[in-house]
């Protein structure tokens, strides 16, 4: 069964460093429980605001510490799901977006899983 990684980009809440409201946390908890009970959720988690970028160019590898202020560089949470089809992954992503407020999620197939 294919695996898909879903993650939030342009995470404005992460950018503003505002913790999610208790209501959102509760909704999110319900969705996580639902996906667990549906047998599709393999792993999930929120991502911290301080990222470090490790870049390679030719033989050089450089490390740049955050914080990065461009919101498009900020990723919120992620979920790794195992579902029958891309459409099913998208359907779950839609359910996530309905409770997550404004923002954008990316759904990509994971190969080699």
């Amino acid at each position: 069964m294919p695996r898909f990684l879903m993650y939030e980009i342009d995470a404005k809440a992460v950018a503003a460093n505002t913790p999610p409201s208790p209501a959102l946390m509760a909704e999110m908890g319900k969705l996580i429980e639902e996906t667990t009970k549906a047998g599709i959720l393999l792993a999930t988690g929120g991502l911290g605001p301080n990222s470090t970028h490790v870049r390679s160019s030719g033989a050089k590898v450089s490390v740049t510490d955050g914080p990065f202020t461009e919101t498009k560089e900020l990723t919120g949470g992620f979920a790794l799901v195992e579902v029958k089809s891309k459409e099913e992954a998208i359907e779950w992503a839609k359910r996530f977006r309905k409770i997550a407020g404004d923002g954008e999620s990316v759904v990509q197939e994971v190969f080699g899983g």
């Binding site: 549906a38 029958k84 089809s85 891309k86 459409e87 099913e88 998208i90 359907e91 779950w92």
Partner: peptide, 13 residues
């Protein structure tokens, strides 16, 4: 996505 495949996905869930 193709609407029929989207319906199929909802159906499976």
């Amino acid at each position: 996505t193709d609407p029929h495949r989207a319906i199929d996905a909802v159906w499976r869930i």
